[in-house]
């Protein structure tokens, strides 16, 4: 198809169009992704997450500036929340990166979460594939940044920068279980501010305990000031070192395998779900089922099992 070739040729217009198709779940989506899939796998995907106000957008901007020096083609996906009331969204992350918008080696796309939880949008994964195929060899995903629930980025990114800043309630005690686990490289932003050292110390302490028996695996902690463009080069060096270490340990490949596995699971269950909906038509039946249960004429497990059985029996669905 024409659009795939145009994307491979590097047309930003067609790439942008394809991203919309993916976002909109349009009928051509699967065909486009599959057609481009053989061309993917070359990009390094970095996730940037952390609480609001920790300076994610500014950090991404400075990473862009730093990595551009290395002749990279960089794609950025910046996710902001959709309003649960109107379904609309105000996407403002790119303001801080806007000076790069004239650069042909940079492609920035703002995405609304469209009701998807987990800090990214449902289409983000496929969008990274499009950028990857289009030749962007570094892809940065900036998550919404509401904190605790943003674990989904693990399934998408090769490496995750967890950004913190002093005075944002980013002390370790305040962190919910889980969030500490997702960081590969920890970034303490606003290092010139009071309290930055304290954040670093606490992080050190927690990670020291965690890696007590194998200190060589302790995650790097980097102090930066994104606003003043300080510490970015060192941060990126430690990112690349970290990757090299993973590769040497053979963990890199495992990581990518896990990613693919998770993605397949996800597509699989989504497809099943869609099929069910089409064939059992369960969203429509739900109301009837509710009635049956309310009147105690049916029981939840036996009802569902019965419906599934009849579905599988009758199915010529594939």
């Amino acid at each position: 198809m024409d659009i795939e070739n145009k994307i491979l040729e590097g047309s930003p217009r067609h790439l942008a169009r394809a991203i919309s198709m993916v976002e909109n779940n349009s009928p051509q989506k699967e065909e486009i992704i599959d057609a481009l899939y053989p061309k993917t796998g070359n990009a390094l995907i970095i996730g940037v997450t952390g609480s609001p106000g920790s300076g994610k957008s500014t950090l991404v901007d400075k990473i862009l500036k730093n990595e551009l020096k290395k002749d990279q083609k960089i794609g950025v996906i910046a996710v902001d929340p959709s309003s649960p009331f109107s379904g609309g969204a105000l996407l403002g992350d790119r303001i801080r990166m806007q000076k790069h918008s004239g650069n042909p080696n940079i492609f920035i796309r703002s995405m609304a979460s469209r009701g998807h939880l987990g800090g990214i949008s449902a289409a983000t994964s496929d969008v990274t594939k499009l950028l990857d195929a289009a030749g962007y060899n570094l892809i940065i995903i900036e998550t919404i940044g509401v904190g605790q629930t943003e674990v989904e980025i693990i399934e998408l990114a090769d490496i995750i920068l967890l950004t913190m800043a002093p005075g944002m309630g980013d002390d370790i005690q305040a962190m919910k279980a889980g969030i500490m686990e997702i960081g590969d490289v920890f970034v303490v932003n606003k290092k010139d501010k009071d309290g930055a050292d304290k954040v670093k110390k606490e992080l050190d302490y927690v990670l020291d305990i965690k890696y007590h028996d194998n200190p060589e695996n302790k995650n790097p902690i980097k102090m930066v000031s994104a606003l003043n463009n300080e510490g970015i080069e060192e941060l990126m060096n430690s990112v690349y070192n970290y990757i090299n270490k993973l590769k040497k340990q053979g963990k890199w490949e495992d990581k990518r395998k896990t990613k693919i596995k998770k993605e397949l699971k996800k597509i699989f269950s989504k497809k099943i779900h869609e099929l069910m909906d089409i064939h059992i038509n369960y969203t429509e039946k739900l109301d009837d089922w509710v009635k049956l249960l309310m009147n105690k004429e049916e029981k939840p497990y036996s009802l569902i099992n019965k419906e599934l059985k009849s579905f599988i029996k009758e199915s010529e669905i594939l």
């Binding site: 959709s82 309003s83 303001i95 918008s101």
Partner: peptide
Amino acid sequence: KDAGYEVIYTGLRQTPQSIVNTAIQE
């Protein structure tokens, strides 16, 4: 946004070229 659209805002002092690039990428 409140009317249900996805809105991208550029910030101040944009050249015509950067507005057009943004419009295309987005």
